[in-house]
């Protein structure tokens, strides 16, 4: 994305903003879809996020990447939407004891298709999924996640480790067709 387009959009140039929109919408849609269940919800969030981007673009100081800035707005909007529409917090409160989970073996992801992984990630319980998305795919620290979701750092860590374990089990199970109880539970859902 050209710097001049960002500068022009900051002055209210809609033509320049349309360019930015066209460039980032297809790149932000997959990000957004990881936080919601339907394309319809993703549309709503993207719409809200791009309106925010338009109104705040004049505050972008050209420090750091513009894409990173856009992405943060999209993710934050998705999280706001999520907080409004979810019973996430009650899940978290019950579930925040640190269990001594045994780490499953390291697994090789090289053969896995992103589309398959997305399906598995979407099967994770909401709380796991949010923390997983933020920590792994958005590269937020546990401290940042704790702040964003209003939970403790420890909770974020434990949610992540559980998410990781569930995912690994699902991936291994899918690959070898294991009929573990876990897989059955997810399939029957």
């Amino acid at each position: 994305m050209e710097k001049s387009d960002v500068a022009k959009a900051a002055e209210g140039d809609l033509k320049a903003f349309k360019k930015i929109f066209d460039y980032y919408l297809p790149r932000m849609r997959p990000v957004c879809l990881r936080y919601v269940h339907t394309a319809f919800e993703a549309d709503d969030i993207l719409q809200e996020a791009f309106v925010k981007i338009f109104h705040n673009i004049k505050n972008f100081k050209f420090e750091g990447s513009f894409e990173g800035w856009v992405r943060r707005i999209v993710v934050n909007t998705a999280l706001d939407h999520f907080k409004r529409n979810s019973t996430f917090y009650s899940h978290l409160n019950i579930d925040q004891i640190n269990e001594n989970e045994t780490e499953s073996e390291e697994i090789d992801l090289s053969g896995a298709e992103p589309s398959e992984l997305i399906l598995l990630i979407n099967k994770l319980p909401e709380g796991y999924r949010m923390v997983f998305n933020l920590y792994v795919l958005e590269d937020y620290s546990h401290r940042e996640i704790a702040e964003l979701l209003g939970i403790s750092e420890g909770t974020s860590r434990s949610q992540y480790s559980k998410a990781k374990n569930s995912l690994k089990k699902m991936i291994v199970g899918q690959r070898f067709g294991f009929k573990s109880t876990l897989i059955n539970r997810f399939n029957s859902k």
């Binding site: 997959p30 896995a112 992984l117 792994v136």
Partner: peptide, 11 residues
């Protein structure tokens, strides 16, 4: 390795 998988997504 997860991050690598989801790089350059476009839809």
């Amino acid at each position: 390795s997860m991050r690598e998988k989801f790089r350059d997504e476009y839809l």
